[in-house]
Design a binder for these strands. Structure first.
Lengths: 232, 232
DNA sequence: CCGACAAGTCTTGTATACAAGAACAGCTAT
DNA sequence: ATAGCTGTTCTTGTATACAAGACTTGTCGG
């Protein structure tokens, strides 16, 4: 039994992990056979994927896994950076006590991240914990609504990040920055928040590295071949 | 001929203007007869409306025009406030020259807003110009992507604002604040941006007024009757 | 009078047949 | 050789019949 939600999760995951590479064709009939379901509910899933930017729909031609769009990535980084700086500063400067649950959750995530670094081949786990850490921050600030909103446009940023975080040093750096952020919140010290968060989110816009190694996955303006359908 | 995009715009508009009141039923068969189109493309439209928060889908029971959710409104106001403060400060403190087109566009919008205030029954025009002003600001900052993202969750905020902006004095205040914002950008003066933007977006969270006059349109926690389907 | 059950009638959800545009191959005519 | 048809075969888009859950109504039995 595979429900629509399961299929959605499955396809999302395959695209995020690059199991389904940018440019791959997602044919409705092929997918309907694979998941043993009719085209109607499957089209709902594809609509959702298109909405989240995972695929581009070319009417009457086909659905392609989208190429990673660095413009979208930059926009999301700016959005998150601006929001998280503000949220963390608010948390750090607020006088009311922090909810214990949230703080404990953040600490536990950091412990699990540390453990994930020690193990080999734990990138995927580390990435999920990274998401969990930031989501927990949003939760602590009462902004899960905005976290969910951002997730709706996360297809490009999430894949971008996976291509970046392949070196172990990078992981250690991220963990250290998470510690700094949590210290700022707990210690009620908002002083260095700006630079920490900016570095944490911005630093690895390393376009050259991506162009060098993963050009085949990127949406390069030179390649544009008749825009996909507008999804507004 | 009414395409899917037309139907979507039409229904969105009817919900925003409260022509379709919160709680109204949008039956697929009824709508398919009204627009003389089959249920399949119509369901696509309803999916989109649900995604944007215009309607709540109760599986196998029906689609209801959503009640205005003040929680969503507050979240969007916080998001926009935080983003616009940052964007405007950046624009005001940047040294590179501003694109003339964008500045002229903003000025023209202000003139048209002034004109709209003088005319009676021009609330709808004023509101659209208000959106146009803020969108132009996002454009000037190179952040139309984020404007569009925010619009995807705008159903509650947009209706909330319509219920608020019924007094002419309020309109004049908004226009004056728009002038201040534009002056900050052009005059490269970022000093008072924070308070101006915060007041501009936050000030009219006047929940009491809404509860008093439009309780029937609001999503009040007391009324909750079996949550609608999750749209993730 | 009232509760329980069951038939009927709403609703949306799914499967499937058909329509119609897009791409391609292969032919023909120039 | 090549431009231009034209039929074939992909694709997604639409209409419609049917499935199945939820609610209403009425009837029957206590």
């Amino acid at each position: 039994m595979t429900s629509k939600a399961d299929i959605l999760r499955q396809l999302r995951n395959e695209i995020l992990t690059l199991e389904l590479k940018p440019g791959s064709i997602l044919s409705e009939t092929a997918l309907s056979e694979r998941f043993e379901i009719s085209r109607t509910p499957l089209r709902d899933v594809l609509k959702q994927l298109a909405h989240e930017g995972y695929i581009d729909v070319y009417p009457k031609r086909g659905n392609l896994v989208s190429y990673i769009d660095l413009e979208s990535v930059e926009q999301i980084i700016y959005l998150r950076s601006t929001l998280e700086k503000d949220m963390i500063k608010n948390l750090a400067s607020h006088t009311s006590p922090l909810p214990l649950r949230g703080v404990l959750e953040l600490k536990e995530i950091l412990e699990r991240q540390e453990k994930a670094i020690r193990e080999e081949h734990a990138h995927e786990a580390f990435l999920q914990l990274d998401d969990a850490f930031h989501k927990a921050l949003f939760a602590l600030a009462g902004r899960v609504f905005l976290w969910d909103l951002i997730q709706q446009s996360n297809a490009h940023y999430a894949r971008y990040r996976r291509l970046h975080l392949l070196k172990k040093e990078k992981l250690k750096e991220i963990l250290a920055e998470h510690r700094s952020i949590l210290d700022s919140v707990i210690g009620r010290n908002a002083e260095r928040v700006n630079e920490i968060v900016e570095h944490h989110l911005h630093e690895d816009i390393n376009t050259a590295y991506l162009l060098e190694n993963f050009a085949e996955y990127l949406n390069l303006p030179s390649f544009d071949s008749s825009e996909p359908a507008d999804r507004t």
